[in-house]
C-alpha cells in the first residue's frame, strides 16, 4: 500500500453524483431508446466511480470488487436492453419510448 496521490474524497464523490444526475436527466428527457440505454450506462458508471472513490479512501479492495459486479450488471443489462430495443424497433417501427405505452391504465 503505497501512497499515490492525495485527492479530497468529497470531490470524487461530487463528480460521481454529477455524472449520475446527468445520466438520470438523459433517461428522463431523451425519447430515443438508444440514448436512454446510453444514459443508463452513464448512471451505472457513476455508481462504479463512487465505489472506487470510497474504496480508495479506505484503502480496501471491496470498492473495486463492487465495481466489477457493476460491470457484470452493466454487461447483462446492455445485452438484454439492446435485444429489447431491436424488438421494439421491429414491432412498433420506431425508437420512441413514448409510443411504447401499452401498459397504460
Amino acid at each position: 500500500m503505497t501512497e499515490v496521490v492525495v485527492i479530497p474524497m468529497e470531490h470524487g464523490l461530487l463528480l460521481a453524483a454529477i455524472l449520475f444526475l446527468i445520466g438520470l436527466l438523459g433517461v428522463m428527457v431523451r425519447r430515443n431508446i438508444l440514448l436512454i440505454l446510453m444514459s443508463l450506462e452513464i448512471m451505472l458508471n457513476a455508481c462504479g466511480l463512487a465505489f472506487i472513490v470510497v474504496g480508495a479512501h479506505w484503502g480496501q479492495a471491496d470498492g473495486q470488487i463492487m465495481f466489477m459486479l457493476i460491470l457484470a450488471i452493466a454487461a447483462a443489462e446492455v445485452s438484454v436492453g439492446l435485444g429489447m430495443l431491436l424488438q421494439v424497433h421491429i414491432r412498433i417501427g420506431t425508437l420512441d419510448i413514448d409510443l411504447a405505452s401499452r401498459m397504460r391504465g
Binding site: 413514448d98 411504447a100 405505452s101 401498459m103 397504460r104 391504465g105
Partner: peptide, 8 residues
C-alpha cells in the same frame, strides 16, 4: 390515471 405507460 397515474399509470400513463410513459417510462419517462
Amino acid at each position: 390515471l397515474s399509470q400513463t405507460g410513459q417510462l419517462r
